[in-house]
Design a binder for these strands. Sequence first.
DNA 1: CCCTCTACTTACCAGTTGGTAAGGCGACGT
DNA 2: ACGTCGCCTTACCAACTGGTAAGTAGAGGG
Lengths: 197, 197
Amino acid sequence: MARGTAERVLDEALTAFGTRGFAATSLDDLAGGVGVTKQAILYHFGSKEQLLEAVIDRSVAELVELYDGVARGTTTGLARVEAVVRTTFAVAARRPELLGLLRQVSRLGDPHTPRLARGMHDLLERACAHLVREMDEGRLRRHEPRLLLLTAYSAVMGVATEPEVMRAMGVEPSLKSMARARREMIVFLRAALTPVS
Amino acid sequence: MARGTAERVLDEALTAFGTRGFAATSLDDLAGGVGVTKQAILYHFGSKEQLLEAVIDRSVAELVELYDGVARGTTTGLARVEAVVRTTFAVAARRPELLGLLRQVSRLGDPHTPRLARGMHDLLERACAHLVREMDEGRLRRHEPRLLLLTAYSAVMGVATEPEVMRAMGVEPSLKSMARARREMIVFLRAALTPVS
DNA sequence: CCCTCTACTTACCAGTTGGTAAGGCGACGT
DNA sequence: ACGTCGCCTTACCAACTGGTAAGTAGAGGG
């Protein structure tokens, strides 16, 4: 019991909810994966819904910390945009379930999506403020910051987390092609964001 | 029985699978919505999986026909890109479940995603060939066509089909804000695709 | 030695799941 | 009038769902 049952349940649930989805995952599945009984999960988390909330909270905290670190560590303008994109691709490669959970939860609706949104709100506001500042100072081409963020988020998330769609396009997902997709994404964003001089 | 039970089941299943998801939808739900019993569905489609396949096939056929029409009806270069984006936003507004199904099925894996991919393959190849032609003739800035398609697909799909994410960003989804998102998306794509002269 | 608390397990439950078997019923051909 | 065919229903079923109740093994304190 090195890592504690509760922690291991959270890990297993994050993976399952983020890839197969919440409805498609049963408590018995999770329990089997961890090596305990379903009732051990219910002991720690009360219900399946509360387990999901715990998974969301932990994942949001991790993502917020990660991207705050990126924002602290990098410079301005396009360099920061690039750093965020690189980080997102890195997360997609190393912990795809984290981004998958965002996808899944954003489709679940009432109690859960707002919870996620609340958790991400401050981070997104900071990102928006940063974009506006950079545009004001002429280091980024002017776009509506929220819709720009949404567009870039969608594009990066899609490319980074939908290998099936890549395969459908005739691109076999691999480390090499992901790296290429990341490069192409940065070229694309640079083309759209470089200020017209 | 104006439209036939089977057709109405397909409609109901498309809506449910495309919004709530395949696993989260039971045959009893569908049957209740249509006003028949679950066994009537199984009579027509054999099993839940076969029903999903029928829904996928019909939706793919509809999308292929739609986008082929757009490709036939419009000109070249950016105008065609814009027409495709406009069409996608129109579909997202009028029949969100169609795009939702794509999303959902692309996460289901083995038998279903490849089936969707096969159905879309020819359309995507034609789109790729068109992009390459336009780039060769200098009407679009050069990008890797498949990754460009994937990027644009992800961006448009994300903005068009994830109102929850919009709400999380502080943009209340409405007809007006959707139109604005569409405009901003076209500006964004134009910025990235206008050839450097 | 016993009490208590944590962290589980075994036993169970009612409701729901996808799926089968058999039968009814109206239309249609003969 | 009679078969039969397409379309659907009633009646089931075993497996699984999330969740409850009760009991238990072990650690730590008094």
